[in-house]
């Protein structure tokens, strides 16, 4: 229901944009749109694990930043592109692990901790960015990537495998994103870990009484979140063929907005990977549309903030409406039963 509503909204938006802006409905724009959606989508996908588990992670932007720098430096060693990407994922997972351990083992508040680590990781990215100066000062330089096989991974399909069919204009990351979204849907819905993630998000006490190790599930959630941010960052750098340390700020907010719009509730226990996917498409479509209408970018900030609040209000009122409906139905049922008895 909720998903269909969002998808419907996306389609209406696309229709409106296509009719109103002449440069919206074309393959080039869709390829660009899908790339942006994929980047945000990967972040949201990782974040969905934390959010379904009842948590929040504000460090995604920081992880994107530091992994971008690490990947670009790593690529100078001349390693194959795929190794760089794997390296990025591992780095991201490591930073996620740090978050997870701080939150679950040291017992710190999640949003303050990840807010701090987010700033910390961004700073760490800067630290790695100053290559040879040896001094913690000076201005930042973008590092141009020269590693060919790495750069190819950020490009379109046609660049990788030659021109082939309808997919050729889309990016590798887009395809990977969709594959992973489907995979994560199954991880969340069909594995023991997924089950336990929902359990700790929906009713942690009951989960604990059933023998679920909450701290472990939480930590793994953060690791997955970090790994996805790392993956997204590795592809982004390859696509932009340069990394700089100002990358990544604000992405954590976009990712949260995407999840919330898609229907992953802030309290936890609701939504799934498809929600994250739809939410990212929604957000990116709107941002893209604004861009096509030549609406100044600052509107996008306003819109994102408003979207989070509106989506939360909508979900809350919808949930209370559904509950009332259910109670009324239960009342009627028990009333009938009482009459029979």
């Amino acid at each position: 229901m909720r998903k269909l509503a969002t998808v419907g909204f996306v389609l209406i938006l696309m229709l409106v944009f296509s009719l109103q802006a002449d440069n919206f409905f074309n393959l080039r724009n869709f390829s660009e749109l899908s790339f942006n959606a994929a980047f945000l989508g990967l972040l949201a996908l990782g974040l969905s694990f934390v959010m379904i588990g009842g948590g929040i992670d504000l460090s995604a932007g920081g992880i994107v930043c530091v992994v971008a720098i690490l990947c670009s430096r790593f690529s100078f060693l001349g390693t194959p592109g795929i190794v760089v990407v794997v390296f990025g994922v591992v780095c991201g997972a490591f930073f996620g692990l740090c978050n997870g351990l701080l939150v679950s083992r040291a017992g710190l508040t999640e949003f303050v901790t990840t807010l701090a680590t987010g700033i910390l990781y961004q700073g760490l990215g800067l630290l790695f960015a100053f290559r040879d100066t040896g001094k913690l000062s000076g201005t930042l330089v973008s590092m141009g990537i020269t590693n060919k096989s790495y750069l190819a991974l950020g490009g379109r399909f046609s660049a990788l495998f030659g021109a082939r069919g309808a997919l050729k204009d889309f990016h590798l990351m887009t395809v990977i994103w969709i594959v992973l979204a489907v995979a994560m849907y199954f991880v969340l819905r069909r594995t023991n870990f997924g089950l336990r993630t929902y359990a700790i998000g929906s009713h942690p006490k009951a989960a604990e009484m059933s023998g679920v190790d909450i701290r472990r599930v939480k930590t793994i959630g953060f690791v997955i979140c970090g790994a996805f941010a790392g993956l997204a960052s590795a592809f982004l750098v390859a696509n932009m063929s340069a990394a700089n340390a100002s990358l990544g700020s604000g992405y954590e907010f976009q990712a949260i907005a995407a999840c919330v719009v898609g229907g992953i509730a802030l309290g936890g226990g609701k939504g799934d990977a498809v929600c994250a996917l739809i939410g990212s498409v929604f957000l990116v479509t709107i941002l893209n549309g604004l861009y096509k209408f030549n609406i100044p970018t600052y509107w996008s900030y306003i819109l994102q903030g408003v979207i989070i609040i509106v989506a939360t209000v909508f979900d809350a009122s919808f949930a209370s409406f559904a509950r009332r409906l259910r109670e009324r139905r239960a009342d009627r049922a028990s009333g009938e039963e009482a009459m029979r008895l």
Binding site: Y198, H203, A206, S210, V212
Partner: peptide, 16 residues
Amino acid sequence: LSLVPALTVAENIFLG
């Protein structure tokens, strides 16, 4: 009650 509201009957019974 020690049940997780978001999960199904079967999932709750075998949780953990």
